[in-house]
């Protein structure tokens, strides 16, 4: 960011005394920034900021089956914070986030590491990276339900294991279980870890690694003291993606657990289908606070604007 701005300012200061004719476009370009930023402000203001502020207000409202009534009740929050079921749901969601985060970080780092340091030809690198990226641009639900014929009672895994004589009867916990939820989430979200880590690894100056090696560092020491610290920003961005996606997930939990597990977003979705908007809004505020705290904590470690 810094360089283009500095150069642009320099260009302005040089150009100004030079010719009067040029002045007009440049003063116009000051206003241009605001005009160019306006559409983004408008869209995000109306469809993100305003709805969230409204939810904050509505979370204090009263409601029944026929409508919402403006009020100032703390009842919705008492329902959220005072019920053991809700606490368990929040803890369950955090549990999914922690497990999926740990797995995606491990898998994501090694995939990115392989692509960045072991694949030598740039074309091969691009092709392999695209192979990893393409599923991200296809439907999440389809990718999720594609596990059903693989993990099901008569699915591929079970029937193969039985045919090989490894197990006498199908394993029941492969599908419709917490295991299935975690597996599907790892399947859906690992990409969000691979991409930012790959991006940071590609920017590591290779001479640093050579220098470390010349100074007598072993392969492990290079990895641990040079590459890993430099990869932290990418890991942080990946973490933001994965954690927020898991915290917001309702469909994977619903479909893959077969209704046996719960998440905060799934609880909200059920409240929404019962038109209990203020109750869902109170949950939304609590969930949003948790997610923003997590993201804020991660952002203290890394400046994302530098990493783009």
């Amino acid at each position: 960011m810094e360089r283009p701005v500095a150069v642009a300012e320099h260009a302005v200061s040089v150009a100004e005394p030079e010719a009067k004719k040029r002045r007009k476009p440049f003063s116009l370009s000051r206003a241009a920034s605001y005009l160019q930023a306006l559409p983004l402000w408008l869209v995000l203001g109306f469809f993100l900021l305003l709805p969230i502020l409204l939810l904050l207000v509505v979370s204090f409202w009263d409601y029944d089956f026929s409508g919402l009534y403006p009020d100032f009740l703390t009842l919705n929050y008492e329902d959220v914070l005072g019920s053991w079921v809700t606490w368990k749901t929040y803890l369950n969601t955090l549990k999914f986030a922690a497990i999926v985060w740990a797995i995606t970080l491990f898998v994501g780092f090694w995939i990115a590491y392989f692509l960045a340091f072991h694949v030598r030809k740039a074309t091969t690198q691009t092709v392999l990276f695209l192979i990893c990226t393409v599923p991200f641009l296809t439907s999440n639900i389809i990718r999720m339900i594609s596990w059903i014929p693989v993990l099901g009672r008569n699915g591929l895994v079970n029937s193969t294991l039985i045919q090989l004589g490894i197990i006498p009867q199908p394993i029941e916990w492969l599908l419709y279980s917490d295991f299935a939820v975690v597996l599907a989430m790892v399947h859906l979200y690992t990409l969000f870890m691979v991409t930012p880590i790959f991006n940071t690894l590609m920017r590591i100056d290779r001479s640093l690694i050579e220098a470390a090696r010349d100074a007598g560092a072993s392969a492990f020491q290079v990895l641990w003291t040079v590459i890993l610290p430099l990869a932290k920003p990418g890991m942080a961005i990946g973490t933001i993606f994965v954690v927020t996606l898991v915290m917001a997930d309702f469909s994977t939990v619903q479909v893959m657990s077969g209704g046996q597990s719960a998440s905060v977003a799934l609880m909200m979705k059920n409240q929404m289908s019962l038109l209990q908007y203020p109750a869902a809004a109170a949950n939304a505020v609590v969930l949003l606070a948790i997610v923003l705290l997590m993201v804020g904590g991660i952002l203290r470690i890394v400046d994302i604007r530098k990493e783009l």
């Binding site: 469809f47 409204l54 939810l55 927020t244 929404m272 869902a280 939304a284 949003l288 997610v291």
Partner: peptide, 10 residues
């Protein structure tokens, strides 16, 4: 980073 379902509800 705002959970999708919150955007939807809002």
């Amino acid at each position: 980073v705002v959970p999708s379902i919150i955007v939807s509800l809002g």
